[in-house]
Structure formats: structure tokens, C-alpha cells
Design a protein around this nucleic acid. Structure first.
Lengths: 224, 224
DNA sequence: CCTGAGACATTTGTATACAATAATGTCCTA
DNA sequence: TAGGACATTATTGTATACAAATGTCTCAGG
């Protein structure tokens, strides 16, 4: 993506995720253009994309607003993620190559190292975690599945949330990854699917326990 | 959507689906603008949306091309549809209201009437079919599920394909709908999910049997 | 004959002006 | 005071010009 357009997208997105733009607030193109330091054209691009991410909604009369995610919406997103990432894990297990297997193991090894610092390296954990999941998605080899999941997984991690995770939660996540790796080693698609679905849903409940009643924006990224 | 933008979208889309724009061919914004009788601005909008529909792909250098769907891609799309529409049917069964139930039954009644003409009214069948499925999706009450499915179901039906369906295929589809209605009547989510998944996958195989080895574009719409 | 540098053509990205549409406020009437 | 037509304002849609980036072709040098 080109410079101004990308910049508008990232800027608006982070303003939404950080709460700087409040949920339900209107997004006027001109005002955003000014805040991003670009013209309306790339802002319009960005809004279109944010809309397909479901971070922005449009009225029937084409006004854009910051989407406010209810608890139900969050549950909804996690439920779909569990289904689709589960399916991705199944396909990945069935198509697993040695090279992909090694990359997945390596990602989980990085996670392990990040966790076992004196003070857990959450940022390192999240990097490894992202790689772990995206390697699996890659191995699943379905463009459409990737496309669908990309709308459910908000990529830029909201660090302030991530840093609340306990070492226990990180360790549990790591060990679930290990079990996934075992399923991959055996090329057992059904097993991999079951573990992955559970992995995502556990992340959901950890999230909902922690955030019950709070602002619900930075949701679709748990420790998974 | 506004006039020019909508026009560009519909025009380009139908040119792709009809094969007027060959799979793999480049889509230059200016040329499309001229053919649609609008400026580049709405064309760019349309291309963005078609890209998210996976009807158009972009290179890393931002050139747009007509996506060519391999047989695997088609199988992929149907597999995901089966999963997601199955889930929608389950949720719909669990949330079914009398009013929604009646609308769904009415849609299938219209299908029945369309089929039982001396010469089957395929267009009427497809209208009813669309209503039937969209009522279920509506009743499922998940914005995200709707958003995901909309990228898998190409709305504008390719009539030339539809007209090849045999009366038998139409009748079978109708009777599967009846079974779904029975599941809804009993609020049996698991049953509804199973029937719906089978319904979609049968449509896939009908499609793939009919089109094996032919051009694969107008795919994601079977008799379902 | 191959290769790569550079000029040229093509295509996309961005800014801006203006048109069209929706939202808002005002005033009049009942 | 409530409601509704109209004017006003705000916001989005579209066209266009130009900038930036990409692709292509030619031709010199090896």
C-alpha cells in the first residue's frame, strides 16, 4: 500500500483501538484527513478498509462511525475464529511439510524463550505467537480462509492489554501450542482442529473474564 | 452506494462473471473508467471491493488482474460456505421466531411454485432461493457471519449457468429446504447445521460434475 | 546473443475543486 | 407548541490534474 493511504489507515486504526476516537463517534473524512496530514482520497481508502475490518460502520446514508463492539460481538468474533482457525489447523495438519513443521516449532521455541525471561517478554511472546499462527494459516493453503480470518484477527496488537497477561496464561498458551505441534507431527487433522478451537475459545474466556464490563475494543486478539 | 460507484462495481463485476474480461487479464483503471462511463475515482472504489470479494487480485506492485479461480479455489469456497452457512443454520434454529419461520416457509413456497410451472421458472427459483438463504442468515443474527459469507456468495446470479439446472436438481434442492424447515420447527440447531452443510456440499458436487474442466468463474453460486 | 542502463510510456497514487446529497436549523402555520 | 416546508450548512461523491511509481523498449557494451 502506498505511503499516504497506509499512513491514514494505520493512524485511524490506532486512534480507534486506543480509544482516542470514541466508539460510536462519527468519522468525518475531512477531519480525519487533517489529523492524518493527507488529503481525503487516502482517508476514503482507509475507511473502506476499516469498514471491511468491521472497525467502522456506515449508515445507509454513507456516514462513517466508529463501530462499538458489544460483548456479543466479541463472543461472535471469537466463535468464528475458533471455527475457522480450527479448520486451518486441520488443513495444515493434512498438508504439513517438514519445512513448515520446523518453522512452526521454531516459532513456539521463540515463545518459550520470551516467557522464561526473569521478566516475561510480552512483546517477544506476541511476535512468536503471531508467527506461529500465521505459519499454520500459510500451511493450510487456502487463500479464502486467510482472507476470512484476516478480518477477524486484528493484527496491530494493543500492547497495553497484552501486558496484563500473567506468566501462567503465557505458559498455558505455550503448552497448548506444544499439543498442536504433536498433532501436526502425527498429521492428525481432527486432533489439530480440536486443540486449536479449544485454544481460541480459552483465550476468549480469559479475555472476557478480564474485561467484563470494560471497554470492549481491543478484543479480537487474545493470548492464543 | 452512490450512483457512479455502484455502476462501476456492477459493470466490472458482470464483465468478469460473464467472461468478457478474461481471467488473468489486467484491469487498468482508466480503461475500466471509460467502459463504465465514469471517472477513475469510482472505479478504484469498485476494484477495492471486488478485491475483497476475491474476484480481483492485486500484485505487490498494485496492478489489478481478474482472479482466475482454479478448481481448488472453488472447492475451497464451497467448503467454507458449508461450514459457515451450517453455523448460520444452527444459530438460526436456536433463535428462530414465528415471524422469521413464516418468512422462510414463504420463500420455499415461492420456490415450489417456480419449479412446478410447465417450464420451470429458474429466475423465480433463484429469487426464492436467495430469499430463503438470506432469511436464515438474518435470523442467525451475527453481523460477522453475514460479512464473511457475503464474500463467499456471489450475489448477481449468472443466469446462463442457472438455466442448465434440471428440474430434478431444483426439486431436490426444494426438498432439502423442507428438511431444514423441519429442523427449524423443532429448534434443532445440530440438525439444521448438518442439513445445511450437506445442502451446500451437494450443490458443490453438482457444480463440479457439470463444469469439470470448463471455465470456472461463475462458481460460488450453485443450486442450494 | 545476452545484459543492463536509461529514456519513454503506462499505470497508479494523491490533492483539489466542484457537484450532489444528507443533516440541521429557522421560521411559518395550524 | 408541534409539525412541516424551506434555506443553510456539513458531508460525501465525482472528475480532473498532476505526481510518483512501475513497466517496457532500445541500444550500447560486453
Amino acid at each position: 500500500m502506498s505511503r499516504a493511504s497506509h499512513r491514514a489507515y494505520e493512524t485511524i486504526r490506532s486512534m480507534i483501538l486506543s480509544g482516542e476516537l470514541p466508539a460510536g463517534g462519527q468519522l468525518a473524512e475531512e477531519a480525519l484527513a487533517e489529523r492524518c496530514g493527507v488529503s481525503r482520497t487516502p482517508v476514503r481508502d482507509a475507511l473502506r478498509r476499516l469498514e471491511s475490518d468491521l472497525l467502522v460502520t456506515r449508515t445507509d446514508t454513507q456516514r462513517s462511525f466508529v463501530a462499538d463492539w458489544s460483548l456479543d460481538d466479541v463472543a461472535d468474533a471469537f466463535e468464528l475464529r475458533a471455527i475457522l482457525e480450527g479448520r486451518a489447523a486441520r488443513r495444515a495438519a493434512e498438508r504439513m511439510t517438514e519445512a513448515a513443521f520446523e518453522r512452526i516449532r521454531a516459532a513456539n521455541l521463540r515463545i518459550s524463550e520470551a516467557i522464561h525471561q526473569p521478566e516475561p517478554d510480552v512483546s517477544g511472546f506476541l511476535d512468536g505467537n503471531r508467527d506461529f499462527h500465521s505459519e499454520i494459516l500459510e500451511t493450510a493453503g487456502s487463500r479464502r480462509l486467510s482472507a476470512l480470518l484476516s478480518t477477524l484477527i486484528e493484527q496491530p496488537v494493543v500492547w497495553r492489554t497484552a501486558h496484563h497477561y500473567s506468566r501462567d496464561a503465557l505458559l498455558r498458551s505455550h503448552s497448548e501450542h506444544e499439543e498442536l505441534i504433536a498433532a501436526f507431527a502425527r498429521r492428525d487433522g481432527a486432533w489439530a482442529e480440536a486443540i486449536m478451537a479449544g485454544h481460541i475459545l480459552r483465550a476468549y474466556h480469559a479475555y472476557s473474564d478480564a474485561h467484563r464490563g470494560l471497554a470492549q475494543l481491543d478484543s479480537s486478539r487474545g493470548v492464543n
